[in-house]
């Protein structure tokens, strides 16, 4: 139960961050990716601030031997660069540039009143399913 509450709290902070920074606005995201047009560099600062806070925070947190409400830390430890990683990231970037949504902002914008996130998130779930089916053997 406690782990659900802490997760809910983290989710609320994340959703607030996405809304405050306007990452939930796909036009803002596309303006950031449009480096040869009317470029809006704001999202670099979003990333900079997020990385700065977590860079320091992660180092403090992982000094503990276990998390507060779970038995162990689950942190990825892979270091190999494979074609799945690069192709996946490349496809993701194309979709991101096409519509201006990545997963977090699209989900966070579901209650914003626009119908766009609903269509996007439904297709995104289909995409998760397609990939899970393709890689399951």
């Amino acid at each position: 139960m406690t782990k659900n509450l802490t997760s809910l709290f983290a989710g609320i902070l994340f959703g607030l961050g996405l809304a405050i920074s306007q990452m939930v606005n796909p036009q803002k995201v596309i303006a950031f990716l449009d480096i040869t047009g009317n470029w809006d560099p704001s999202l670099i600062l979003v990333m900079f601030a997020a990385v700065a806070v977590s860079f320091v925070g992660f180092r403090l947190v992982t000094k503990q031997s276990t998390p507060l409400v779970e038995t162990r830390f689950r942190i990825p430890d892979r270091t190999d660069i494979d074609s799945k990683l690069v192709c996946g990231a490349a496809l993701f970037g194309i979709g991101w540039g096409m519509a201006g949504y990545c997963p977090g902002p699209a989900i966070s914008a579901l209650l914003s009143g626009s119908y766009e996130p609903l269509i996007f998130v439904t297709a995104m779930f289909a995409g998760f399913g397609i990939n899970q089916r393709m890689t399951r053997t």
Binding site: K84, L85, G88, A90, F92, G95, P103, I130, N131
Partner: peptide, 14 residues
């Protein structure tokens, strides 16, 4: 199309 690409791409690229 964008949603499908983002779903497949993030899933494939972890």
């Amino acid at each position: 199309v964008a949603g499908l690409l983002v779903g497949i791409g993030t899933s494939l690229g972890s």
